[in-house]
Amino acid sequence: HNLTITQGKLFFHYNPKLCLSEIHKMEEVSGTKGRQERNDIALKTNGDQASCENELLKFSYIRTSFDKILLRWEPYWPPDFRDLLGFMLFYKEAPYQNVTEFDGQDACGSNSWTVVDIDPPLRSNDPKSQNHPGWLMRGLKPWTQYAIFVKTLVTFSDERRTYGAKSDIIYVQTDATNPSVPLDPISVSNSSSQIILKWKPPSDPNGNITHYLVFWERQAEDSELFELDYCLKGLKLPSRTWSPPFESEDSQKHNQSEYEDSAGECCSCPKTDSQILKELEESSFRKTFEDYLHNVVFVPRKTSSGTGAEDPRPSRKRRSLGDVGNVTVAVPTVAAFPNTSSTSVPTSPEEHRPFEKVVNKESLVISGLRHFTGYRIELQACNQDTPEERCSVAAYVSARTMPEAKADDIVGPVTHEIFENNVVHLMWQEPKEPNGLIVLYEVSYRRYGDEELHLCVSRKHFALERGCRLRGLSPGNYSVRIRATSLAGNGSWTEPTYFYVTDYLDVPSNIA
Score class of each variant (00 low, 15 high):
residue 230 Y to N: 13
residue 318 R to L: 05
residue 206 N to D: 03
residue 505 L to D: 04
residue 296 V to T: 11
residue 418 I to P: 05
residue 500 Y to R: 12
residue 297 V to Q: 14
residue 352 H to L: 11
residue 222 D to N: 10
residue 289 F to N: 04
residue 440 L to H: 14
residue 300 P to H: 09
residue 461 H to D: 15
residue 206 N to T: 05
residue 466 R to S: 11
residue 327 V to D: 12
residue 387 P to Q: 13
residue 388 E to N: 12
residue 424 V to M: 10
residue 284 S to V: 12
residue 282 E to F: 15
residue 461 H to I: 11
residue 291 D to F: 11
residue 287 K to V: 14
residue 307 T to I: 04
residue 306 G to A: 09
residue 298 F to K: 01
residue 255 N to T: 06
residue 388 E to S: 04
residue 481 R to L: 13
residue 430 E to P: 14
residue 374 G to D: 09
residue 310 E to L: 12
residue 210 T to G: 11
residue 374 G to P: 08
residue 438 I to Q: 07
residue 358 V to M: 15
residue 370 R to I: 11
residue 290 E to M: 08
residue 407 A to I: 04
residue 235 L to M: 13
residue 252 Q to A: 10
residue 466 R to A: 05
residue 262 S to Q: 10
residue 257 S to C: 06
residue 447 R to C: 08
residue 262 S to T: 11
residue 486 S to W: 00
residue 481 R to Y: 08
residue 432 K to R: 05
residue 236 K to F: 04
residue 317 K to M: 07
residue 451 E to F: 11
residue 344 S to F: 07
residue 336 A to G: 06
residue 435 N to R: 01
residue 245 P to A: 06
residue 477 N to P: 05
residue 264 G to R: 10
residue 275 Q to D: 05
residue 423 V to P: 02
residue 375 Y to I: 03
residue 366 I to N: 00
residue 246 F to C: 07
residue 395 A to S: 11
residue 276 I to V: 05
residue 399 A to P: 05
residue 376 R to V: 06
residue 284 S to A: 15
residue 458 S to C: 12
residue 435 N to C: 11
residue 289 F to K: 03
residue 241 T to F: 14
residue 242 W to Q: 09
residue 299 V to S: 11
residue 205 P to A: 11
residue 309 A to T: 05
residue 220 A to L: 07
residue 266 C to V: 08
residue 454 H to A: 07
residue 487 L to P: 08
residue 399 A to F: 04
residue 489 G to F: 12
residue 325 G to K: 15
residue 498 Y to N: 02
residue 307 T to R: 14
residue 229 D to K: 09
residue 338 P to I: 14
residue 203 S to P: 05
residue 409 D to W: 11
residue 265 E to F: 11
residue 271 K to S: 03
residue 336 A to N: 10
residue 453 L to V: 06
residue 457 V to R: 14
residue 355 F to K: 12
residue 440 L to K: 09
residue 471 R to K: 06
residue 489 G to S: 07
residue 340 T to N: 14
residue 369 L to D: 01
residue 427 M to S: 11
residue 419 F to T: 11
residue 498 Y to V: 06
residue 236 K to Y: 10
residue 281 E to V: 06
residue 319 R to I: 05
residue 351 E to V: 14
residue 299 V to Y: 11
residue 417 E to T: 14
residue 461 H to N: 07
residue 280 L to I: 08
residue 458 S to F: 04
residue 477 N to V: 04
residue 320 S to V: 11
residue 390 R to W: 11
residue 266 C to H: 00
residue 394 A to S: 06
residue 387 P to D: 01
residue 238 P to V: 03
residue 436 G to N: 02
residue 305 S to D: 15
residue 282 E to A: 11
residue 217 E to C: 08
residue 342 S to E: 12
residue 303 T to P: 11
residue 350 E to W: 09
residue 211 H to Y: 15
residue 353 R to T: 02
residue 238 P to F: 10
residue 383 N to E: 01
residue 419 F to L: 08
residue 303 T to M: 12
residue 476 G to L: 00
residue 361 K to A: 08
residue 253 K to S: 06
residue 269 C to E: 10
residue 417 E to C: 06
residue 379 L to F: 05
residue 490 N to C: 09
residue 427 M to T: 09
residue 337 F to T: 10
residue 354 P to R: 09
residue 237 L to N: 15
residue 404 E to K: 08
residue 269 C to K: 03
residue 455 L to G: 06
residue 269 C to M: 06
residue 250 D to M: 12
residue 437 L to K: 02
residue 332 P to N: 03
residue 424 V to C: 13
residue 406 K to V: 12
residue 205 P to E: 11
residue 289 F to I: 10
residue 450 D to N: 08
residue 329 V to H: 14
residue 216 W to H: 06
residue 351 E to K: 06
residue 451 E to Q: 14
residue 443 V to E: 00
residue 241 T to R: 11
residue 263 A to E: 06
residue 285 F to R: 14
residue 218 R to G: 11
residue 421 N to T: 10
residue 435 N to P: 01
residue 336 A to D: 12
residue 403 P to L: 10
residue 297 V to L: 07
residue 284 S to L: 07
residue 453 L to E: 02
residue 479 S to E: 12
residue 236 K to A: 15
residue 492 S to V: 07
residue 454 H to R: 03
residue 243 S to A: 10
residue 228 L to Y: 03
residue 207 G to R: 02
residue 495 E to T: 06
residue 239 S to L: 12
residue 485 T to E: 02
residue 317 K to P: 06
residue 279 E to D: 09
residue 287 K to G: 09
residue 367 S to V: 14
residue 367 S to I: 13
residue 206 N to P: 03
residue 281 E to P: 03
residue 404 E to W: 08
residue 289 F to M: 03
residue 228 L to R: 05
residue 448 Y to H: 04
residue 395 A to K: 15
residue 284 S to H: 12
residue 474 S to W: 12
residue 332 P to D: 08
residue 286 R to K: 03
residue 266 C to Y: 03
residue 463 A to Y: 04
residue 220 A to C: 15
residue 498 Y to F: 07
residue 350 E to Q: 04
residue 412 G to V: 08
residue 398 S to M: 03
residue 316 R to A: 13
residue 225 L to K: 11
residue 283 S to V: 10
residue 353 R to L: 11
residue 338 P to M: 11
residue 444 S to V: 10
residue 431 P to R: 01
residue 305 S to R: 06
residue 288 T to C: 14
residue 356 E to S: 13
residue 447 R to K: 07
residue 509 S to T: 08
residue 392 S to P: 04
residue 247 E to P: 13
residue 448 Y to K: 04
residue 392 S to E: 02
residue 390 R to G: 08
residue 504 Y to G: 08
residue 337 F to M: 14
residue 242 W to E: 04
residue 490 N to K: 03
residue 224 E to I: 05
residue 501 V to F: 12
residue 457 V to W: 05
residue 394 A to T: 13
residue 244 P to I: 10
residue 500 Y to D: 13
residue 222 D to G: 05
residue 225 L to D: 09
residue 261 D to V: 14
residue 339 N to C: 13
residue 203 S to Y: 15
residue 469 R to E: 09
residue 221 E to P: 04
residue 237 L to W: 13
residue 272 T to D: 03
residue 338 P to D: 04
residue 232 L to A: 09
residue 287 K to F: 06
residue 318 R to A: 12
residue 319 R to V: 10
residue 395 A to D: 13
residue 308 G to R: 08
residue 461 H to V: 10
residue 328 T to L: 14
residue 252 Q to W: 11
residue 360 N to S: 08
residue 422 N to E: 15
residue 298 F to H: 08
residue 230 Y to M: 04
residue 340 T to S: 14
residue 212 Y to F: 14
residue 416 H to C: 09
residue 396 Y to G: 07
residue 263 A to N: 13
residue 258 E to S: 13
residue 468 C to G: 02
residue 303 T to E: 14
residue 231 C to K: 02
residue 492 S to C: 09
residue 365 V to W: 06
residue 287 K to T: 13
residue 303 T to G: 07
residue 396 Y to K: 15
residue 331 V to K: 04
residue 347 T to M: 12
residue 498 Y to A: 10
residue 241 T to E: 06
residue 380 Q to F: 15
residue 450 D to Q: 11
residue 277 L to F: 09
residue 234 G to I: 15
residue 257 S to H: 04
residue 258 E to T: 12
residue 227 E to P: 10
residue 505 L to I: 02
residue 320 S to G: 15
residue 393 V to G: 01
residue 476 G to K: 00
residue 294 H to M: 15
residue 311 D to Y: 15
residue 336 A to K: 11
residue 321 L to K: 12
residue 230 Y to S: 07
residue 453 L to F: 08
residue 400 R to T: 09
residue 384 Q to P: 02
residue 272 T to S: 07
residue 332 P to L: 12
residue 425 H to E: 14
residue 322 G to K: 03
residue 272 T to R: 09
residue 489 G to E: 15
residue 246 F to R: 04
residue 276 I to M: 11
residue 290 E to S: 13
residue 354 P to Y: 08
residue 475 P to I: 11
residue 367 S to F: 06
residue 223 S to C: 12
residue 205 P to S: 11
residue 287 K to S: 07
residue 237 L to V: 11
residue 291 D to Q: 12
residue 342 S to C: 03
residue 259 Y to D: 04
residue 461 H to W: 13
residue 370 R to V: 03
residue 405 A to H: 03
residue 228 L to A: 15
residue 505 L to R: 05
residue 436 G to F: 14
residue 492 S to M: 05
residue 308 G to L: 09
residue 343 T to G: 10
residue 213 L to P: 02
residue 332 P to R: 15
residue 379 L to M: 09
residue 270 P to M: 14
residue 487 L to H: 00
residue 399 A to T: 09
residue 468 C to T: 02
residue 506 D to N: 01
residue 366 I to D: 00
residue 414 V to Q: 04
residue 295 N to D: 03
residue 213 L to M: 13
residue 505 L to G: 09
residue 473 L to K: 01
residue 391 C to N: 02
residue 223 S to T: 09
residue 358 V to Q: 11
residue 303 T to V: 08
residue 457 V to E: 02
residue 266 C to Q: 14
residue 268 S to K: 10
residue 220 A to M: 10
residue 239 S to I: 08
residue 316 R to E: 09
residue 227 E to R: 08
residue 338 P to A: 08
residue 425 H to N: 11
residue 363 S to M: 02
residue 242 W to G: 10
residue 309 A to K: 14
residue 283 S to T: 14
residue 485 T to L: 15
residue 463 A to W: 11
residue 216 W to G: 03
residue 379 L to A: 09
residue 283 S to K: 02
residue 429 Q to R: 03
residue 351 E to P: 09
residue 246 F to W: 03
residue 452 E to M: 06
residue 427 M to A: 04
residue 454 H to Q: 13
residue 285 F to L: 07
residue 267 C to T: 04
residue 416 H to K: 06
residue 424 V to P: 03
residue 380 Q to W: 10
residue 245 P to G: 12
residue 474 S to L: 09
residue 407 A to T: 11
residue 230 Y to L: 11
residue 353 R to E: 06
residue 376 R to L: 14
